[in-house]
Design a protein around this nucleic acid. Sequence first.
DNA 1: TCGAGCACTGGATCAATGATCCGGTCACCA
DNA 2: TGGTGACCGGATCATTGATCCAGTGCTCGA
Lengths: 236, 236
Amino acid sequence: MAAKHSGSAGDVWLRRPARAAREAPPLSRDRIVREAVALLDEEGAGRLTMRRLAERLGTGSTTLYWHVKTKDDVLDLALDAIFAAVEIPRPGAQDWRAGVTALISGWRAVLLEHPWSAALLGRPMLGPNVLARSEFLYATLVGAGVTEPHLTAAAYGLSNYVIGSALMQATWTAQEEDAPRQAAREFLRDNRDRYPVLATHGPLTGDSDWDTSFALGLAWLLDGIGSDEQRTERAP
Amino acid sequence: MAAKHSGSAGDVWLRRPARAAREAPPLSRDRIVREAVALLDEEGAGRLTMRRLAERLGTGSTTLYWHVKTKDDVLDLALDAIFAAVEIPRPGAQDWRAGVTALISGWRAVLLEHPWSAALLGRPMLGPNVLARSEFLYATLVGAGVTEPHLTAAAYGLSNYVIGSALMQATWTAQEEDAPRQAAREFLRDNRDRYPVLATHGPLTGDSDWDTSFALGLAWLLDGIGSDEQRTERAP
DNA sequence: TCGAGCACTGGATCAATGATCCGGTCACCA
DNA sequence: TGGTGACCGGATCATTGATCCAGTGCTCGA
């Protein structure tokens, strides 16, 4: 004797309230992406489910598929969305080196603020936010007189370095899960005969300061880019 | 009237042949990992399934769980396994710079030979193969006179740089799938007003030579490490 | 004013997958 | 020869991404 359709049809009481009377704004791709980022921030990449995401949005899971083609779309959109927070220096407002440093540091900060993003870096990033920042990077380097093949090498090198650094740090800084790091430390201590240098000088031994390490490496790269640039400009 | 158990029990004909008479060697963690690598190489990370892996091994999928705790175990083991192919230079046989270059280049070659590996770099790598190579890296740097904080920065910088480079290249060199790259190129051409520098100097415009770009960046890093090392050794 | 069309929604459902339960089978040893 | 433990796999469960299709309400033109 159950109603054939228990959901949208039938009883007034069960019917969805009129659009205007609803508390939440209508669903939109933008709202989906915002909520996805929030969900990822709170629970990590592993727990992002279309169902869970829909629940947080107060809709059915299938509704999402009207606004978005696949789950990967959500991930791509979320990934690009967070880069909006990276401030783009005003072109020419400063030394090329200062500009690049600012951009790369901001890039890194965002990646670390959203640790789930590191795991998603293995997909083409072609969103508007990413492209705008790449544009600035290339423009700054070109403006500084860097030419091929150093230009591509510089842009790639910088990007790859940030990505690798963030990925590595995010891997070992899993939120408040210090257990694996501790276990790894102990493992190295127990096998100090096999890995003597790692056990004493390894990354897990000291209080490895990610920030200074990153800064040093970045400086090395910038030095190299700068020296090549000068050579190019001055050389006959 | 169907037999209650159609599988292991019952008819002699359906019974699994005695261990010795079987063609395949008995299942082992090692054999599983080897087959997993083969499967990953052939079909990519997305198509690695416990069922499919078991099928290739001629066993039931559940059998795998006796040798391995979870699917992630398989991935971790496969990831470490491929690094066995990275040759470790004989310590002290050459210039520290040559040794490091050899190791890092081998590292990169392996990552590119197994593109699926790039996507797995976001997990702690504590396998014996990885550790042995890290040991060499640290030992070589220490032997060259690099001290903290430059030591950690150097090791991290080099690792992060390879990882980032391989990840990026693997992302854009998806096997014979040139479609997305082509599409991206066209997209940039169509939006050359918004991304003027990218459209003309961007990484997708030229025949971006991954190898030379990588070599240049690596040289920059090594220059930086070397200069700091000399300064440390010579300075009072 | 009204009705048609379109933007949007979601319950039911499917197939694929990771993982577990539990009842087997086989080699080996005392 | 009897038993013990290493090893195997069919049935099964819960979860998840994705699709089908029957709706529902807003809007706009006649």
